[in-house]
Amino acid sequence: MLHAVLPFVLCLVLFIIGLYAISVKKNLIKVIVGVIIIHNSVNLFLVLIGYRVPATGSAIAPIITPQMGRDAMDVRELLSHSVDPVPQALVLTSIVIGLAVVALMVVMALRLHQKYGTFDLTEISKLKG
């Protein structure tokens, strides 16, 4: 049953790499890199959750193509083979949210560099923590 869980565990490894960067690295850019890696790992996890092993060949996207016609029977056929559309919709939303967060982080990093003249978090520490 290794193949049933291995992809998910690999996602978690990616997540931990991101977490490691956030908790250990003392450079602003590295922290931002860590946050983006975490975003990517979560998106990867969600995409893999919706995956369906197809009967043959490569995965079938949840798109009704012209070849299939618009027959109800074909949609049932599609349903029994295609991947789940809901996680994909969720990931589309979460990718865009992630971009918004990254934009804010970048702006903050630039402002902090203006104020302190460095990306070193040990020097950016006016607050007591």
Partner: peptide, 8 residues
């Protein structure tokens, strides 16, 4: 692409 999510 591999898992069938071209829009993504």
């Amino acid at each position: 692409l591999i898992v069938g999510a071209p829009d993504l």
